[in-house]
Amino acid sequence: MSTQVSLEERFQARIDAEQKIEPKDWMPEAYRKTLIRQISQHAHSEVVGMLPEGNWITRAPSLRRKVALLAKIQDEAGHGLYLYSAAETLGISREELYNELLSGKAKYSSIFNYPTLTWADMGAVGWLVDGAAIMNQVALCKCSYGPYARAMVRVCKEESFHQRQGFELLLTLSKGTPEQRAMAQDAINRWWWPSMMMFGPNDSDSPHSAQSMRWKIKRYSNDTLRQKFVDMIAEQIKVLNMTLPDPDLRWNEERGHYDFGAIDWTEFNEVLKGNGPCNRERLAARRKAWEEGAWVREAAMAHAAKRQQSV
């Protein structure tokens, strides 16, 4: 018991000293479990997140947009891959993680349960959804678990074009025909609140936060990051000459931040429970890809075994 305590103390001391924890280092079981949950949720989000944007690949209205969108979605596959790899260093296999996703046990970011209805959604998703994701990810580059932090550094490098391509897309629409402008505004209206919810519940309702902050697998609180996001977007939207669907949004001189309206968490909770517009479709698509890929993976393994034998 006393050695356990001292192990935990030493572990916390290392974290307090900003040292990285590496896979073979001793770590509390709860730290390992929390990390697996957080990293795999993050990985699932990247992979499921390919679907709403993938929905528009074949309809991208110019060749330049088409390659940008493809490259962007491919990056998300890479992010999923880096993150699954980081989780695997904690002693769980990718297949086990997939199974948790496909059985509905594991969560992923609820934002991807909303449909992409028009081309402008590709802009709004890149600008708002990737924008919100980047806020989180930049913070995680300094997280205490080495493999997770390194994956995040790589992810952030690649993310840098995602938000820009989304914004540029909207900017083009904003300078276009009245129909294009309306399309852009409509997309912003639909994606704004779900993006705000990506930062998770308010700090007062966030049960895991305190421990995660102590372990430095979360470096800023949900509300801090959300505020940063609002401050960034509220300025950028001026360039688009469009509006955010929040009548309470205004600059607060005293706070040095934008004030914004209360978030309606009822819808968020319903989507989280599985009642979003696309929850079923998204999981079904991932399940289909995985199940239909089974014979391919088996064949590759069988062939590899044959090759090995013949050497």
Binding site: V47, M50, L51, G54, I57, T58, K66, L70, A71, I73, Q74, A77, G78, G80, L81, Y84, A285, K288, A289, E292, G293, A294, V296, R297
Partner: peptide, 19 residues
């Protein structure tokens, strides 16, 4: 090939087809 993006038999193969 773009139609495969997000639906490949494994992440690595998905990325290869997008390339």
């Amino acid at each position: 090939l773009g139609e495969w993006c997000g639906h490949g038999p494994e992440l690595e193969i998905d990325m290869a087809m997008t390339n």
